[in-house]
Design a protein around this nucleic acid. Structure first.
Length: 592
RNA sequence: GCUGAUGUAGCUCAGUCGGUAGAGCACUUCAUUGGUAAUGAAGAGGUUCAUGAGUUCGAUUCUCAUCAUCAGCUCCA
């Protein structure tokens, strides 16, 4: 049995033990037990219980589980008919629902654990509880979860349990969780003074001086790349009259997520009602539509970094990961069908450049035509096959996932899932074909033969949103940003105030070279100044005193390196900085 | 929106079994002229413990509501 099967059997079996323990604690007549699948770090089980489980209940449940294991009960598999199963699980509404959905005549497998507990299950399981005694488990938390993941149905109590084959692996996992907590972007964001929130504007970050420098560096990176790839940046209104949203379809389908701005008479639904844009697309369509276009102009790439607003239900916000006001590195590229392939390939090459600059890897997913698709099925088929071809070329056949029927109603899409230092995946990049909006806005171009054609729009974002992406890289890099990105790139510590003049000279020279630099000219101990800059994780901290001033050198403390570099010529240091800004290296140069 | 928890000085947190709050860091002043992660001493800082009601002689501490945040669920960039 390999490790994966082992985990499956053990976690699966342990979830039955959890259910049995909960039933013994609360009494069989008081517990409705639903399902208990395994997950990446253990398993959970959903229950309907007479009262809420709290952390104080965990030890009792864990102890009961251990007590049950010690009984060394045999596990017995049985096969029963649908009727027998319904009888066996009489009074258990969730089990009954599951059984009723099975085909008539299907044999149903059930597992007995000892004489007094039975659960519906495909298995496989251990033969005797004894086999589970070496396994390590720990209740993680209890929380609410909807039956069948449907918010209109019962809210059950889900008990999450970490489960591993042995104590060492459990310990290692708990250490991993702790590490993730230390990397929490909300925590590091406060420490590094990057951003804050106010309850007067939930989910709308304030970017503080340091954070805004980083944000700008990130925008610059994107703009530099896009310039090289023939993009033209535009900026458009943040609020538009209802009229625009009616054309785009947002008024009908997205109104609940839009911040509305009442007109003069405050009448809901009045024509002078405005709405803050939740997406940039409609205004990009308007921009295209302002004039006639020839096939010779295509592709037209309108990139856009405006702020957008999306109203979220309470409880959906989460630091920078989920906000109500954010900025996308958005673009709408207008193409003819024959340009899709080269254009998408180019976008993927930009994605490679961006993600590798942060040391992030990613994988691609293709989502294809859904049942409620709009447009011409021939165009869909063609587009999908083009996208597949690109993905095959770039990643190799079978090296990307295909989500059949998961595309948007307006076109197929490629999503890029990035993977961070802790192995967590995030959906950031997305490349979507759209046959619908150009149609709604009646966009055209004149083709070679003089006929009017409808362009296809490629929507794409690679950071996704700057806010979410910054959150991800804070956690991925633990706040240790590469040189080109850090809010301040160099900090200067004059040892005594008499060294301030030389320090100012250095500051000016670095600033001239396009380096973001900060210095502390106060009359206080150098250690105090050092401490601040190091806490802020500035990549290089320069210490200057008599010796440096005399020789026109600097002493460099490299972030993350214990020993200092002395007698570094100032000019040499500036060159190193310029080089790193230009090349956007991920790692700091620590040998100068 | 749902389940649960949390909300005390700029930050991290302690505390009051109901009698008008405390520590460390940060901040200010003075002394220290200092060579690589916390020099010493003194001081200030909370419209009084998210907001609003209620119970009480009295509430930061109890009850309810609201807001915000966090962990899940659902939905999403």
């Amino acid at each position: 049995m390999n490790n994966e099967q082992y985990l499956e059997v053990y976690r699966h079996s342990l979830s039955h033990i959890l259910a049995k323990a909960v039933i013994e604690i609360f009494g069989a007549e008081n517990v409705q037990y639903a399902i208990g699948p395994q997950i990446s770090d253990g398993f959970y089980y959903d229950f309907l219980l007479p009262r809420t489980i709290t952390e104080d209940d965990f030890p009792a449940i864990e102890n009961k589980m251990r007590e049950i294991l010690k009984r060394r009960e045999d596990w017995k598999r049985d096969e029963v008919s649908k009727e027998e199963a319904l009888e066996l699980f009489k009074g258990q509404k969730y089990k009954t629902e599951i059984i009723e959905e099975l085909e008539d005549g299907e044999t149903i497998s059930i597992y007995h654990t000892g004489d007094d507990f039975v659960d519906l299950c495909r298995g496989p399981h251990v033969n005797n509880s004894q086999e589970l005694m070496g396994a390590a488990f720990k209740i993680r938390q209890a929380s609410g979860a909807y039956w069948r993941g449907d918010e209109k149905r019962d809210m059950l109590q889900r008990i999450y349990v970490y489960a591993f084959p042995n104590q060492q692996e459990l310990k290692a996992h708990l250490a991993f969780i702790k590490e993730a907590l230390e990397r929490d972007h909300k925590k590091i964001g406060t420490q590094l003074d990057l951003f804050m929130f106010s309850d007067t504007a939930p989910g709308m970050p304030y970017w503080l001086p340091r954070g805004w420098k980083l944000y700008n560096a990130l925008m610059k990176f994107s703009r530099d790349l896009q310039d090289r790839h023939g993009y033209q940046e535009i900026s458009a209104p943040l609020i538009n009259y209802k009229k625009l949203w009616v054309i785009s379809g947002h008024w009908a389908h997205y109104q609940n997520n839009m911040f509305l701005v009442p007109g003069t008479d405050w009448t809901p639904n009045a024509d002078d009602m405005m709405a803050a844009k939740p997406m940039n697309c409609p205004n990009a369509m308007m921009t295209y539509k302002r004039t006639n276009h020839s096939y010779k102009e295509l592709p037209i790439r309108y990139s856009e970094m405006d702020v957008i607003h999306r109203k979220e239900k309470s409880g959906q916000m989460n630091g920078l990961f989920r906000v109500q006001e954010f900025r996308q590195d958005d673009d709408h590229t207008f193409v003819s069908e024959d340009l899709i392939e080269s254009e998408v390939a180019d976008i993927i090459s930009i994605a490679d450049t961006i993600y590798s600059a942060f040391g992030l890897t990613y994988r691609a997913e293709l989502s294809t035509r859904p049942d409620d698709f709009m447009g011409d099925i021939e165009v869909w088929n063609k587009a999908e096959s083009i996208l597949k071809e690109i993905l095959n070329k770039r990643y190799g056949e079978g090296n990307y996932e295909i989500n059949e029927g998961d595309g948007a109603f307006y076109g197929p899409k490629i999503d890029l899932q990035i993977r961070d230092a802790l192995g967590r995946e995030w959906q950031c990049g997305t490349i979507q074909l759209d046959f619908q909006l150009p149609h709604n806005f009646e966009l055209t171009y004149t083709d070679k033969d003089g006929s009017m054609k409808e362009p296809i729009v490629i929507h794409r974002a690679l950071y996704g949103s700057f806010e979410r992406f910054i959150g991800i890289i804070i956690e991925h890099l633990k706040g240790r940003f590469p040189f080109w990105l850090n809010p301040y790139q160099v900090a200067i510590v004059p040892i005594r105030t008499e060294h301030n003049d030389y320090a100012k000279e250095i500051e000016e020279a670095l600033t001239d070279a396009g380096i973001r630099v900060e210095a502390d000219y106060q009359d206080k101990h150098m250690n105090e100044k050092l401490k601040f800059f190091r806490n802020m994780m500035d990549p290089y901290v320069l210490v200057v005193g008599d010796k440096e001033r005399e020789n026109r050198t600097v002493s460099v403390t490299v972030r993350g390196v214990k020993t200092q570099l002395h007698d570094v010529p100032l000019d040499r240091f500036i060159e190193i900085c310029k080089k790193q800004n230009k090349e956007r290296n991920l790692e700091l140069i620590s040998e100068i």
